[in-house]
Amino acid sequence: MFEARLMNATILKKILDAVKDLLNEGTFDCSDSGIQLQAMDNSHVSLVSLTLRSDSFDKFRCDRNLSMGMNLGTMAKILKCANNDDTVTIKAQDNADTVTFMFESQNHEKVSDYEMKLMNLDQEHLGIPDTDYSCVVRMPSMEFARICRDLAQFSESMVICCTKEGVKFSASGDLGSANVKLAQTSNVDKEEEAVIIEMQEPVTLTFACRYLNAFTKATPLCNQVQLSMSADVPLVVEYRISDLGHIRYYLAPKIEE
């Protein structure tokens, strides 16, 4: 028996919004430590890794490890049927071929349940090595989303150059070029507005704007985003999900032909 409850549907809606543009389907691996989803986008350029810890759920029971393949478009449709302040309970029997989403209004007077067929997904699991990154940038997630949106107008690719002075985002194409420089925040009044750079070595890498923009769909989940970069390895774009866990996106840098 699997049962996981959150007192508020909002967070689950935001999580689905953060993945559904990249992934059509995904396998939710459930164990007593929580729920994990790892999946590549259709073109195998980026990887999404979602971790939700069991101890942060309002109720969590997982008697046996369970892998539930879900159509994320359908799951998003079902979650649209929940009000933001509804309690959400996700339930499945062991070896079941369906999962049930139950929504309960705050006054307990409306209870709805939606059953969804599970899919048998033959997805590759990738082993992500522990990496000491040359540069780790923490910055406001809204600012990152804004920069990705603005620079995508100029080119398919964006160069991110990080030094200890700051981080520079650049794009150039037929229309012209754009550069946005952010300096490290000197005094931090509000932590969520800070730009903080931890640098071992400067890094310059090129990434596809399309994927970066897809990652910024997670912006409503967290005020800050963390970018971890090293030469010749995938960028990690991480959004923390309050005390529940995190969503990480991995994107391989573009290379010279």
Binding site: L47, I128, Y250, A252
Partner: peptide, 13 residues
Amino acid sequence: MTQPSITSFFNTR
């Protein structure tokens, strides 16, 4: 520039 697949960086488990 070319876009490599993420699978060329992470091993299949």
